[in-house]
Design a protein around this nucleic acid. Structure first.
Lengths: 254, 254
DNA sequence: GGTAATTTGTTCGTATGTATG
DNA sequence: CCATACATACGAACAAATTAC
């Protein structure tokens, strides 16, 4: 005789219940960015838990990037607008503890960036195109410091033009991780000047393809550009996998 | 007269210092998965902070998926092997708070999955190919419940065959989010049977292309397959952006 | 199997530095 | 400048859970 199907109950901590309720209020929109949570003392009354429990819950919410609390603030913890900081943190952790290789990260960038460019070539506005062009111009006239910033601005404009917020956020996160990983190496590159010039040429080609609306060409060029830029820092045996994204000579083209 | 350039010091909480040290030990490999942290009382001695501070730090580390602590465990908190749970959580939050549309998520899946398949067609082993084939066979003989599981198994085998752990993890995370979002709708689809049959046909075509080593064809087919599967659940004005990934009739092919 | 010891989960009280008005 | 309310941090205590003997 089979009774009702009971489900196993995991012991759920008090602080988790607090986290769940606050998190639910934020995700449902009952609490909007900029609004304030009640003070810790008020929360311990509303949830009927102790102060420590409230604080542990707030720590978790803070670690997830949902709230921020400052000492002495009479208004209680602030609900934050979403920021990809938590996503950034967990992906960085992934890269470190899961031993992601630079090759894997660059390959992922090639995939995301070329997808963004493919979409941008179709969906861009004139204004966004102007942003990309301005960024490339800045790359030309920049020293090696401002060069990186202009490069970021270009790719960010592309990502926004893709119309997909997830692509935009992920490209940004992965790019910053890659840049952090090899910051030193690039700066000390013997032929840094030549690398910059070649990169500018690549960006101009990509920009022209985007302007012409030729997404597949733009995407192919961007993959090649990123490969050329990073290949020297990637072990030869890993480069094979990266080239698997390149050497369809006719990918996306006639 | 300019003195030494002091940098502004942000007030860093005591629990953050604890988090940083433990996190550093884990990321550097000084602490490996399966190993145990000292007990809370031991930690408060080593860090010379109070127990509350130690606990707040442990909560944060737990929220990041790095450790787990159980009540009564004499061995202290356990260092966990990396799991994408934290990544999953932050991306789910992103989807909710940042109001990601189903269209954006599906588009992202199309990008990642087709990249995985493109790579898998090149880099797969025979064993991985057999896994994919087995999954497709299971899809054929499954009811609507097991169908989903077999589908997941197929895409997971593909992602592993891509050779890129980041692609593997992200495809998994995004897939589960999408599936959660529309779980109800798919189940109550009027023509669920027909949808399943068509999906099986698509998967067989993709599998054949992978077996033949034709990555661009496999990628194109997979994008089309995913579009067909989800299009009905996506508002018409959003479908335009998804089709921007499709209607290069010749993408990746001659 | 039962009991003791240890650990985590949780509560409560207190002191301190800080931001607001 | 002062008063108030807040977050930060500490410490002691008890309950519940786990392990080991």
């Amino acid at each position: 005789m089979s009774g009702p199907r009971f489900e196993p109950v995991r012991a759920v901590r008090a602080y988790e219940r607090v986290v769940e309720q606050v998190e639910g209020a934020i995700e449902s929109g009952a609490l909007s960015p900029g609004e304030r949570l009640p003070s810790e003392r008020e929360l311990m009354v509303q949830f009927s838990v102790s102060r420590s429990t409230v604080r542990e819950a707030l720590r978790v919410l803070q670690a997830r990037g949902l709230v921020r609390s400052r000492p002495g603030d009479p208004n209680g913890a602030e609900v934050l607008p979403f920021s990809p900081a938590a996503l950034h943190k967990s992906m960085t952790t992934l890269a470190r503890v899961s031993e992601l290789s630079l090759g894997e990260l660059v390959q992922f960038r090639m995939v995301l960036d070329s997808a963004a460019i493919l979409l941008a070539a179709r969906l861009r506005t004139e204004e966004q195109l102007a942003e990309m062009a301005a960024a490339v111009e800045r790359m030309k006239e920049a020293d090696s410091e401002a060069f990186g910033a202009a490069d970021v601005a270009f790719h960010d404009a592309v990502a926004r033009a893709s119309g997909n917020k997830l692509i935009q956020i992920c490209t940004d996160v992965v790019r910053s991780i890659v840049v952090d990983l090899i910051a030193g190496k690039i700066a000390s590159a013997p032929d840094g000047e030549a690398l910059m010039r070649r990169s500018i040429g690549h960006h101009e080609e990509v920009l022209a393809a985007v302007r012409a609306g030729d997404g597949p060409l733009a995407a192919r060029l961007s993959r090649q550009s990123m490969y050329d830029y990073y290949a020297d820092y990637i072990p030869a045996e890993e480069r094979v996998a990266l080239r698997a994204l390149l050497d369809y000579g006719d990918i996306g083209g006639p």
